[in-house]
Simulated scan of single mutants.
Amino acid sequence: MKTWLIMVMLLLLNACHPLTQMRSDELLNAVGTASISIQHGDTLEEKQLKAMRASKLEAYKELSEQVYGIRVSNLMKVDDQTLGEDRTLGMVDGIIRAAEVISSYPVGDSYVTELELNLRKMKEMAKYDESHHVPPNNVLIF
């Protein structure tokens, strides 16, 4: 009985842990990869450069998903009780500031880019920078 009482007391003391002392993660990490061989280019160096850029963009997309979430839309058609068309679309939209490239390197036929984002630094930069509208993914502006 005494052991049971001690365990209950310890659980109650742990439950009273103040929220202000809990660790808050301000750093986010993301990894992007891109295949080298599928890139368009005349030389291996050109393909590697394009894969490097694609992997960096992929890592930024990963950070955007972590910060802003991902919008998932689905269209499903049923005709005469049979499934017809079934399409799912995922979309990420956001502005990432202050991300730093931690590392960028080839691994086999892929290029890998690792990014780190300090959320506090990103919020501070947003105070001093003008935000621009990001166009929908079907509109390209050059």
Rank of each mutant, 00 (worst) to 15 (best):
M1E: 11
M1R: 12
K2F: 14
W4T: 12
L5N: 08
I6F: 07
M7I: 14
V8N: 09
V8F: 14
L12A: 09
L13G: 04
N14R: 05
A15Q: 14
A15R: 12
A15N: 13
A15L: 15
A15Y: 11
P18T: 07
T20Y: 13
M22I: 05
M22A: 08
R23H: 13
D25R: 10
L28G: 03
N29Y: 15
N29H: 10
A30K: 00
S35I: 00
S35F: 00
S35D: 04
I36D: 01
I38G: 02
G41P: 03
L44T: 11
L44E: 15
E46R: 11
Q48F: 02
Q48N: 06
K50W: 05
A51S: 05
M52W: 07
A54S: 11
L57F: 10
L57A: 14
K61F: 06
K61V: 05
K61W: 02
E62G: 01
E65A: 08
Q66D: 09
G69F: 01
V72R: 00
S73V: 02
K77H: 08
D79V: 07
T82W: 07
L83D: 01
E85P: 00
D86W: 08
T88I: 11
L89K: 01
L89C: 04
M91L: 13
M91I: 12
D93Y: 05
I96P: 02
I96V: 14
R97V: 07
R97W: 08
V101Q: 11
V101G: 03
V101P: 02
I102P: 00
S103R: 15
Y105R: 10
Y105A: 04
Y105I: 03
P106K: 08
P106I: 07
V107K: 13
Y111C: 01
Y111T: 00
L117K: 02
L117H: 02
N118F: 00
N118L: 01
R120L: 07
R120V: 03
M122V: 03
E124N: 13
Y128Q: 10
S131H: 14
H132K: 15
V139W: 08
L140I: 11
